[in-house]
Design a protein around this nucleic acid. Structure first.
Length: 847
RNA sequence: GCGGAAGUGGCGGAAUUGGCAGACGCGCUAGCCUCAGGAGCUAGUGGCCGCAAGGCCAUCGGGGUUCGAGUCCCCGCUUCCGCACCA
C-alpha cells in the first residue's frame, strides 16, 4: 500500500465521487428511502467548525444508511436572503446578490473539501427567482384561503436594522440579530394566520416522539394554551358598553375587586373622555406603553396604575368595582383586560396592597372563610368556594363549570381557550428578500399578482441608503403597475417577506428542485418526505421549526402533501466553543476548517468532531484532540498496510466450521461485537462518539492480536513485516483478520470516507464503497464460549467462576455454592437467598 | 419566579434494562526502537494502605429503597439552557 497522505486522498476521492455523481439520487419505489437533512446555511462567508459539525453528523447518517441499502436523499442549499448581506451593501456598496453568490461559492468549496456527501445537483438558494417564485405562489394561495391577511398593527421595530421583527424575533426586549432595544410602530403589515393551527400544532407535539423533549416543551410553552373564560363586565352609566376580561379562574370572580385595563386598551381613550382631565389619563397610559419591556421584567418594576374613575359591574354579583389602568396588563394577550382578584393572584395582591384596594378571599382548602386582612401574599385558590353567593360551598372545579354555563346562558361570557401564540407578521421593509406579490388598486383594493406573472422579481438596485422605508418604494418602475383586474393605475406592495418564509418549506423543494410548474411534484414529495433525520442548532427550536410545521399544514390544506409533520426525527446539535465562547469573527476565536484540512486532512477533522462528545453536547475545541484522531487513522492505515498482502488473497468470508484457535475466536467475537455496537450507536442512538470508541477498541484488539501472532505491527514503514507471512501460512487466520479489517474499514467509512475508500480499494474491492454493504452482525459469532461470572457474598466479590456462556441460572447457583472460596466465606452462616443477575453475576446473601 | 437538562479522574467523556464505575481518547510516567524525534510500539496512570497478593475508600452533599444504586425515590447545593407580570 502507498504511504498515508490524507490530503492527497481527499483530492483523489472527492474527484472520483464528483465524476461518478456518487450522491445523486432518483425516486425508486423499490428501495426504502431515507431523507437526511441538515438545516441549510446562511451564506455568511465562511463556515467554521461549529457549522461544520452539523454537516458531519448528517453525513455520517447519510453514508451509513446508503451502505445499509437505503435510497438516501442528502441535499444542501442556502438560506440566502437576509439582513447581513443588505447591511453590508449599505456599508460597503457591494450588491447583496454579488456578495451572497460569492459567499455561497466559497462555503460550497469548504463543504466539498470536507467530503460531505451532498447531492449537489439539487442545490438551491432562496434568492433564486425560481425558488422565491413559489414563496409568492404560496402567499397568494394563503391569501385566497384567508391565511394571509393585512392589517394595521403596532409592530416591533428594530431601529438599528430598520425593520419590523416578528414576536419570535424579539429576545428580552431586543432585536434577535443585533440586540438593539425594540420600539413600537404602527404600520400596515401582512400576517400569516398561524393561530388557526395553534391547537393542532400543540396537540401534534405528542406524536413527535423522536424530537428532543426540550424542543417540544419550548414549542408547547410558546403556543401557550390556557383554558378559561371570557366574562363581560358592565360599565356603570353606559348600558351598551362592556369590558371583556379573560380569566382562567372564573370561580374566583366574587373576589374580583377591580378591573384592570392594559395601557393600550381601546377603552382607555374612551374612558379618558369621561374624566376631569382626559389628557392626563392619555399621557399616563402612554408612559406605561413605552415602559421598557425588558426592564419591567428583569428589574421587577413596581406595579403601577391609575383609576379611570369609571366603575365596572360584576355580572355575577351585580356589585361595582373600579376600573384601573395597570402597567402589567398585556394588551396583546387575551382581551387586554383582566379582573383583579388580589386574594388569589400575587400580581393582583401586590397591586391591591399598593393602591389600597380591597382583598376578598373566596376559595379556601376547607371551605372556612378567612380574614383577608391577615394575608401577606396571595393564597392558592384550591378547595371550596366561600363568600361566593349561590356558588358558596361548591368545589373550585364544579364552580368553574357552573359559572361558565351561567355566563353563556345569560350572554355575558363563555368558556374559551386562549393561546399565547400570535399571528406571524411577515412584512419587512427591506430589499434583500422575496417581494410580496400584491398590488393595491384604488378601484379593486388588494389584488394578488396573477400566477402567470410570477415571479415578481427583485429589481436590481444600485443604491443602498439604509433609510427606514422600504428600498423597493424608491424604484418607480417596480412600484407603478397596472391593476391586473381593471387595468387602471395601481401600486405594488414594496415590502418583502421575512426570510423565515423561505426556510419554512425548502425541504420540500429539495424533493423536486427544478420544477418550473409547481413548488414541487406531490409524487416526489410523497416518496421522500417526511424528512427522516433533521439536524441543526437548538436556536431554531421555536422559530424555524414551528413555522415549518405550520407550512406543512398549509401545503396539506392546499392539497400538495398528505402529512402534517415534516420532520420525523430531530437532533439538536451542540455548539463548538473556543476558549469557552461561541466562535465568532468579532471575538477572533474562529477555528477555520480549511486550516485543519491542510494540516490533518478531512478524515481526521471529521472523526475528531464526532468523537469528542455526543452530538447534542456543547464541546470545547482542542487541537490536541484532533491530533489524536489523526494518529488513530494513521494507526488504522498501518494495520491495513501490514496485513494487506497476506489477507487480500483469501476469501473475504471466514469459512463455516473453520477450526479456529482461541485468539482467532476472540478476535471474531470482538469484530462482531463492534459491528453490533457501532450499528446501534449510529442508527438507533446517534451516539457517534461511542461508535468511534468501539472502533478504536477493535483496532487495539487487532494490534494485540498481531502481537500475539508474531512480531507486531512495525511503527514505521520499511521496518520488518515478519508476521505477515505467518498469517498467510494459515488461511483461517488470514480470513479472520480480513473479516475484522474489512468490517472496520466499512464502519469507518461514514466518519473517514477518504481513507476508507482507499483502504477498501487496496484490499482488492472494485467499485468503491458505493458497492459495499454495511457489515452484518452475527450473533452466533459474537457469543462467547465461556464467560467469567463474579460471585459475591453479601455484596463483596469473593470468587469468579469460569462457565459455559449458556450456563443456566440453576447451574450458576449450584456451581457458586460449590466453589471453595465461597464455601469458605459461608462457613458458619446460613444462606438466605441466591440471586443470579442476567447470567452475569451471582449474589449470595448469608447471615 | 416557572419549566427543562445536567453534576463521574488532571481534561473530553463511557457505563444500552439497577449488576465488576472510569470504556475510548487527550494529557502524564517509564521502557523499547532510533543519528534524532513534537514519530512509532509496549506497559502504567481515581485516591489511600501494602514489597506483593490483596484490602479499604470513591460517581455534588445528606437520607432512603434493594442482595446490589452513577443509574430508582425524598431533601438540599451548584451549573447550564429555555420562558418570564400570559391573568
Amino acid at each position: 500500500m502507498p504511504d498515508y497522505h490524507p490530503q492527497a486522498l481527499d483530492k483523489k476521492w472527492q474527484r472520483r465521487w464528483h465524476e461518478a455523481r456518487a450522491f445523486e439520487v432518483d425516486v425508486d419505489p423499490a428501495k426504502p428511502k431515507f431523507y437526511c437533512l441538515e438545516m441549510f446555511a446562511y451564506p455568511s462567508g465562511h463556515a467554521h467548525v461549529g457549522h461544520v459539525r452539523n454537516y458531519i453528523i448528517g453525513d455520517v447518517m447519510a453514508r451509513m444508511k446508503r451502505m445499509l441499502g437505503y435510497n438516501v436523499l442528502h441535499p444542501f442549499g442556502w438560506d440566502a436572503f437576509g439582513l447581513p448581506a443588505e447591511n453590508a451593501a449599505i456599508k460597503h456598496g457591494i450588491h447583496p446578490e454579488v456578495s451572497t453568490r460569492g459567499n455561497i461559492a466559497h462555503m460550497k468549496g469548504q463543504l466539498q473539501r470536507l467530503g460531505i456527501s451532498y447531492a449537489w445537483e439539487r442545490e438551491l438558494a432562496t434568492c433564486d427567482a425560481e425558488y422565491y417564485k413559489w414563496n409568492q405562489w404560496l402567499f397568494i394561495r394563503m391569501f385566497e384561503k384567508g391565511l394571509a391577511y393585512r392589517r394595521r398593527s403596532s409592530v416591533n421595530w428594530c431601529p438599528s436594522c430598520n425593520t419590523v421583527l416578528a414576536n419570535e424575533q424579539v429576545v428580552e426586549g431586543g432585536c434577535w440579530r443585533c440586540g438593539s432595544a425594540v420600539e413600537t410602530r404602527d404600520l400596515e403589515q401582512w400576517f400569516f394566520r398561524i393561530t388557526a393551527y395553534a391547537d393542532e400544532l400543540l396537540t401534534a407535539t405528542e406524536r413527535l416522539t423522536q424530537w428532543p423533549e426540550k424542543v417540544l416543551t419550548m414549542q408547547r410553552n410558546w403556543i401557550g394554551r390556557s383554558e378559561g373564560a371570557r366574562v363581560r363586565f358592565g360599565v356603570e352609566g353606559e348600558p351598551d358598553a362592556g369590558i371583556e376580561v379573560f380569566t382562567t379562574r372564573i370561580d374566583t370572580i366574587f373576589g374580583a375587586t377591580c378591573v384592570l385595563l392594559a395601557p393600550e386598551h381601546p377603552l382607555v381613550a374612551r374612558f379618558a373622555e369621561r374624566a376631569a382631565d382626559p389628557a392626563a389619563i392619555r399621557r399616563q397610559a402612554q408612559v406605561f406603553r413605552t415602559q421598557d419591556r425588558s426592564a419591567r421584567i428583569s428589574g421587577e418594576i413596581d406595579k403601577q396604575g391609575f383609576d379611570t374613575g369609571v366603575r365596572a359591574v360584576n355580572p355575577f354579583t351585580g356589585g361595582t368595582v373600579p376600573v384601573w389602568v395597570a402597567n402589567f396588563v398585556l394588551g396583546e394577550y387575551g382581551t387586554g383586560a383582566v379582573m383583579a382578584v388580589p386574594a388569589h393572584d400575587q400580581r393582583d395582591f401586590e397591586f391591591a396592597r399598593t393602591f389600597g384596594l380591597p382583598v376578598r378571599v373566596v376559595v379556601t382548602p376547607d371551605g372556612q372563610p378567612v380574614d383577608a386582612a391577615s394575608l401577606t401574599e396571595a393564597r392558592p385558590a384550591y378547595g371550596t368556594l366561600v363568600d361566593s353567593g349561590p356558588f358558596t360551598g361548591l368545589s373550585s372545579a364544579e364552580a368553574q363549570k357552573r359559572m361558565s354555563t351561567l355566563a353563556r346562558e345569560r350572554g355575558f361570557g363563555e368558556a374559551t381557550v386562549q393561546f399565547r401564540l400570535k399571528d406571524w407578521g411577515i412584512s419587512r421593509q427591506r430589499y434583500w428578500g422575496t417581494p410580496i406579490p400584491m398590488i393595491y388598486c384604488e378601484q379593486d383594493g388588494i389584488v394578488p399578482v396573477p400566477d402567470d406573472q410570477l415571479p415578481v422579481e427583485l429589481p436590481k438596485l444600485a443604491q443602498f441608503t439604509g433609510r427606514g422605508d422600504s428600498p423597493l418604494a424608491q424604484v418607480p418602475e417596480f412600484v407603478n403597475v397596472t391593476c391586473p383586474r381593471c387595468g387602471g393605475p395601481a401600486r405594488r406592495e414594496t415590502d418583502t417577506m421575512d426570510t423565515f418564509v423561505d426556510s419554512s418549506w425548502y425541504f420540500y423543494r429539495f424533493a423536486d428542485p427544478r420544477n418550473a410548474r409547481q413548488p414541487f411534484d406531490p409524487a416526489a414529495v410523497k416518496y421522500w418526505l417526511p424528512v427522516d433525520f433533521y439536524s441543526g442548532g437548538v436556536e431554531h427550536a421555536i422559530l424555524h421549526l414551528i413555522y415549518s410545521r405550520f407550512f406543512a399544514r398549509v401545503f396539506r390544506d392546499v392539497g400538495l402533501v398528505d402529512h402534517d409533520e415534516p420532520f420525523t426525527q430531530l437532533l439538536t446539535q451542540g455548539m463548538v466553543l473556543k476558549d469557552g465562547a461561541v466562535m465568532s469573527k468579532s471575538k477572533g476565536n474562529v477555528v477555520d476548517p480549511d486550516t485543519m484540512l491542510e494540516k490533518f486532512g478531512a478524515d481526521a477533522l471529521r472523526l475528531y468532531v464526532m468523537f469528542v462528545a455526543p452530538p447534542e453536547k456543547e464541546v470545547e475545541w482542542t487541537d490536541a484532540g484532533l491530533e489524536g484522531s489523526a494518529r488513530f487513522l494513521a494507526r488504522v492505515w498501518r494495520l491495513a498496510d501490514h496485513w494487506n498482502a497476506a489477507i487480500r488473497t483469501v476469501a473475504p468470508a471466514v469459512p463455516a466450521g473453520a477450526a479456529l484457535g482461541a485468539a482467532e475466536r476472540a478476535l471474531r467475537r470482538k469484530t462482531h461485537d463492534t459491528i453490533r455496537r457501532v450499528t446501534a450507536d449510529i442508527e438507533q442512538r446517534q451516539q457517534l462518539n461511542t461508535a468511534v470508541s468501539a472502533m478504536m477498541e477493535l483496532v487495539n484488539e487487532l494490534y494485540a492480536f498481531s502481537e500475539g501472532t508474531a512480531t507486531g505491527i512495525p511503527g514505521r514503514r520499511g521496518a520488518e513485516q515478519a508476521d505477515a507471512p505467518a498469517v498467510a501460512e494459515r488461511p483461517e487466520t488470514a480470513a479472520v483478520v480480513r473479516e475484522a479489517v474489512e468490517a472496520l474499514v466499512r464502519m469507518l467509512a461514514p466518519f473517514a470516507p477518504h481513507a476508507a475508500e482507499e483502504m477498501w480499494e487496496q484490499l482488492g474491492h472494485a467499485g468503491g464503497l458505493a458497492a459495499a454493504r454495511w457489515p452484518v452482525f452475527d450473533a452466533e459469532v459474537a457469543r462467547a464460549d465461556e464467560i467469567v461470572v463474579p460471585v459475591q457474598v453479601n455484596g463483596k466479590v469473593r470468587s469468579r467462576l469460569t462457565v459455559a456462556a449458556d450456563a443456566s441460572e440453576a447451574d450458576l447457583e449450584r456451581l457458586a455454592l460449590a466453589d471453595p472460596a465461597i464455601v469458605a466465606q459461608l462457613a458458619g452462616k446460613t444462606v438466605r437467598k441466591v440471586v443470579v443477575a442476567k447470567g452475569r453475576l451471582v449474589s449470595v446473601v448469608a447471615q
